[in-house]
Amino acid sequence: MVAAVITLFVMGLAFGGLLAVAARKFAVDADPRTEAVQAALPGVNCGACGYAGCSAFAEAAARGDARPDGCPAGGPALALQLAAILGKKVEAREREVAQVLCAGSRSEAPDRAVYSGIPDCRAAVLIAGGPKGCTYGCLGLGTCVRVCRFDAMHMNANDLPEVSGDRCTGCTACVKACPRGMIVMAPASRRVHIRCNSRDRGAVVRKVCTVGCIACRLCVKECPREAITFADNLARIDYARCDNCQACVKVCPMHTIGISPERVQARGA
């Protein structure tokens, strides 16, 4: 009994000593900034930065491979914080949020066929281009909602996705997931959006949707700041020029141009 206690005690001392020596001698120089960066990151591993997760991004940032503003989810506030930790400069950029560019739910833009496959937009487009009459619009199966890691999207009562501007971090997961390519990023302060993605001619759009852009160009003529461009039968807003005056909203005969709600404060700002 006594012998066992003494043996173990001595062994413990010996191994402890060895470990202490090894820890000194073979110490890896870890950049203390890695830990600081990681602590500041959102920690949801969304992958929007292009790295395998938040810790991989933190390591890359400390090494100097990733830019301080490389985390879309953290936004400008985090970029400033990381720049301070890393001793670098970032330009202040406005926070961007996702905008859904389709207003045609089933009541406005009815389906042309019955779809009974996997309830996922990416699966639906594989079958005859999808069941929706409009081949550019929202399929309403909620793939964007499911890929959102920040609970910033939901399907509204009309089966169209809606973005909660205060929760959206701008990670662009929904933009990449949408097989129609009808979700775009827009500066958070811009409130006027042309909610249509159809590049069909006006006559075709009228047949499949009651709220689609019919390429009448009234908005283009009305805009005092020349912020609306027109190509491929579709009007688009140049967010850098738009000043939210809403003149276009009033003239649009199809009520395609929508106003997003007044912005709540940005995350963490």
Partner: peptide
């Protein structure tokens, strides 16, 4: 399976 193949090949966004 077709969905998986499409996603692995890299989907074209939009049309």
């Amino acid at each position: 399976i077709r969905l998986a193949k499409g996603e692995l090949r890299g989907r074209r966004v939009g049309r």
